[in-house]
Design a binder for these strands. Structure first.
Lengths: 259, 259
DNA sequence: CGCGATTTGTGCACGTGTTCACGAGCGCCT
DNA sequence: AGGCGCTCGTGAACACGTGCACAAATCGCG
């Protein structure tokens, strides 16, 4: 854990932890039923790249389920999720695959399994800090409930905003953080504050016991090792696109002298 | 290009294109001045992982520049950007490094170089499609101008919204897309529509000549090979955090029987 | 009941990305 | 001027992720 975890196309993702949690880290086969699947109730391991794709599979599966399909082939599902079918099969094999050869995967069963792995059985309570431009939009975004989350509380440091109601939720002062986090059993928080306030908010969240943070502020957050941070930065995404745009432009400008 | 490009911790990123643009793909040394740096005016190649980190370096550099520093060591900058210092040095080496051994990097010079590589010299015009909850927040977000972009036009399909002014910008009907894109020289678009409308909007954008898309709608977009798509999905980010949360919970619940 | 069509599961080779560790160059101080 | 300490640049080893290609397994049909 620790540090920003996004690293869009990372290859390994630092992750010095993992052994810090009690796993002996002896060269276990990692994937595929090592001896028996029984003793270990949960998955022994799961590549980070796979974890990042599971939500996409889940979304695609929900769409398929609504259209009435009850089984999918890896090819279909892979196409719907925008990935290679071999990759999809390998990803699903990490979850003790339940596909049927010659047939495909049972949609309902697969949905349930992925939701279980992602820990989405319980609707998780999320705190949203910073009710500015972006924060209000996130608070008003309805797509959370259907995907395993609900925003349980809104916070802001600006006294003018405290007391407002946004999407039916009361905006509370940041000083009430500890109390509300404890009462609502909040473990995940979203930071939508200006950059200069983000580290302070982070420290407060961590002190309250929050262990997962989604950061929209354009800055690096430093957190203890047991806290996960993911970052979403609009401008960075655009700049990456800009690079490719720039490259495409310079390439097409060249005389395409091949052979 | 082609397909969704995010793949948070991807290892390679499909990328069947690249040869589709005219590069012979002969095993060029890729990094580091092959013979002379002169003949090739632009960078010959650049790992995707590096490209994704350059914007973060750029942001950190701007902060350092404001604090008055005129040189940075790789260690300092790496810390500010939240990465390993060796990784940072290697990344910068791809840009024909301009660091001075024993001293560090010239902040101003490095900023200029990265901005050049990312194609941020020209302020790029961006179209924003979908002026709902999220779209309005994005339109109102002020952090664009300072980072190389400006929103040049807003579009929506809802006649009720067309004609509104948001952050000083007129909301136009999606049917005017082609005209405006041509006039404003727009190459990058942001999609903030509901999922069911996203593919249609994408097709329209591609038809107008847009070649880079940032997609906030929770769905996979299919586009031709020469178009880049990056995806940002709130719920997916939260679900990834949920997984780690889930795993942390089950791990600490186990008796930490080591040795 | 057996065969063929079909689709999963996965071993293996390859490409990409990360990290360490150390040589090369630069500035400063004596 | 010469040496010394500091920092960049990078080769090489390693870890991770991907995709092909094929064996194993299952269903349906004659």
């Amino acid at each position: 854990m620790s540090q920003q975890r996004n690293e869009r196309p990372a290859g390994s993702d630092p992750r010095p932890a993992r052994s810090a949690a009690g796993l002996p880290a002896n060269g276990s086969p990692a994937h595929g039923l090592s001896d028996r699947g029984a003793p270990v109730s949960e998955l022994p391991d799961l590549p980070e790249a796979t974890v990042a794709r599971l939500p996409e599979y889940l979304r695609a599966l929900h769409v398929l389920a609504e259209d009435g399909g009850d089984v999918v082939s890896s090819e279909e599902l892979a196409h719907a999720a925008g990935v290679n079918s071999a990759k999809l099969r390998k990803d699903l094999s990490y979850l003790r695959s339940n596909g049927t050869r010659g047939v495909g995967y049972d949609v309902g069963q697969l949905i349930e399994k992925i939701e279980h792995v992602l820990g989405l059985n319980q609707h998780r309570a999320v705190a949203l800090v910073g009710v500015g431009n972006l924060g209000q939009a996130l608070a008003g975004y309805g797509g959370f409930g259907s995907r395993g989350f609900h925003i349980a509380a809104l916070f802001d440091a600006d006294p003018v905003r405290v007391g407002d109601r946004i999407a039916g939720l009361l905006v509370r002062h940041i000083d009430d953080l500890a109390e509300v986090v404890a009462v609502e059993h909040i473990a995940i928080a979203v930071i939508a504050t200006p950059a200069h306030a983000a580290q302070g908010v982070t420290d407060a969240l961590v002190a309250c016991g929050v262990t997962s943070i989604l950061n929209f502020a354009p800055c690096v957050l430093s957190v203890p090792d047991n806290v996960d941070v993911r970052k979403v930065d609009l401008a960075i995404e655009l700049q990456i696109l800009s690079f490719h745009e720039h490259r495409k432009a310079t390439l097409t400008a060249l005389p395409e002298a091949i052979s």
